[in-house]
Simulated scan of single mutants.
Amino acid sequence: MRIGCPKEIKAQEYRVGLTPNAAREAVSHGHEVLIETGAGAGSGFPDADYVAAGAKLVETAEAVFEDAELIVKVKEPQAVERKRLKEGQVLFTYLHLAPDPEQTRDLMESGATAIAYETVTDDRGGLPLLAPMSEVAGRLAPQVGSWALQRANGGRGVLLGGVPGVGPGKVVVIGGGNVGTHAARVAAGMGADVTVLDMSLPRLRYLDDTFAGVFGNRYASKGATAELVAEADMVIGAVLIPGAAAPKLISRAQLSEMKPGAVLVDVAIDQGGCFETSKPTTHENPIYEVDGIIHYCVANMPGAVARTSTIALGNATMPYLLALADKGWRRACEEDPHLMAGLNVHAGRLTYYAVGKALEIDVLSPQLALKL
């Protein structure tokens, strides 16, 4: 199979969809790998690394899309990239379609088959291709939030760890999953007073058994959430419903009850955000203020640490990439229901229920889509 990897063009996105190691593996399996010139530079992978791995350099993204059967990326295809997709091609990348009707429509109209990293599952009920970026984003969230808390950036001027004689900052993490757990660990490691909110009692028991004494936890009732958010210096939104739009957990009205200069970090912004006042930002202009509250809503947070993120993502995607290339996407999905769960669009039809529900679009089951 001919595998193509274009350079990412989303603002301040420095990751790349294919590492030299992944390219080498694909070539060793008998596949041809096309890499756009300079695609890996932002992650510290020069063109020479890909050539040494057996890949072929291609001068333009247009040539990659024109020749490749399987397109591998990191971020959702931008408008210009969606126009280059064609019937019969397979796109393998993060999509986050639920809050993005325009992208969904374009993918359906392209006739391409789109498999989303974020909805591929595993036999433990996890999301193995979302997990590495969730870990990165979770660990970054307190770091970028502490920067936003600095007075020069509009924040409260609070040092998370405090100093002798001055108490630590208070951090509330909404969501005790992968993102939230990593965020809480790092925030606690910075010396903050951290509380994790979650609605799953089994998850709260796990957090208590594993991290007792490191950070606290509370059941995420509306009352407890409102109480803790009002006291917080930083709130990290880390709630995920696989493939679906994120629930709005803090309303604009609640901002008036927060401390002026407090910071909201919305890690769920790729799925529409979990705060009512969230809107996507970029690494170039990462923060904005609403009613005295600083919002950090960068939609590709892991892109800031592109080398770590690219290697972590490449480690996770490689087995699925090889399965798609070795077997063809139909057989690969037929033999692996977890990969089948990643199928979001095929032959002009939407094939993921949560996206269809969010966008009010009719959905065809992936099993039926395979027969088209």
Rank of each mutant, 00 (worst) to 15 (best):
K10T: 11
G17C: 03
A22S: 14
E25I: 13
G30V: 05
G30R: 09
H31Q: 10
A39H: 09
F45E: 10
P46C: 01
Y50S: 08
L57W: 02
E59H: 07
P77Q: 10
L85A: 09
K86F: 05
L107Y: 10
T113C: 12
Y117E: 05
E118V: 06
G125T: 07
P128E: 12
N153G: 01
G154R: 04
L159Y: 14
G161D: 02
G162S: 07
I174Y: 07
A183I: 03
A183Y: 02
A188P: 05
M190I: 03
L197M: 14
M199L: 13
D208C: 00
N217E: 10
Y219M: 14
Y219A: 05
E231C: 00
G237I: 07
A245Q: 14
A246L: 11
A246S: 15
K259Q: 14
D266P: 00
V267C: 14
S278K: 01
K279M: 11
E284D: 13
G292D: 12
I294L: 13
I294N: 11
Y296I: 05
C297G: 05
V298A: 11
A299R: 07
V305E: 06
V305S: 00
M318R: 14
L321I: 15
W329C: 02
E335C: 02
A347F: 00
G348F: 12
V355D: 12
G356Q: 07
L364P: 00
S365E: 07
L370S: 01
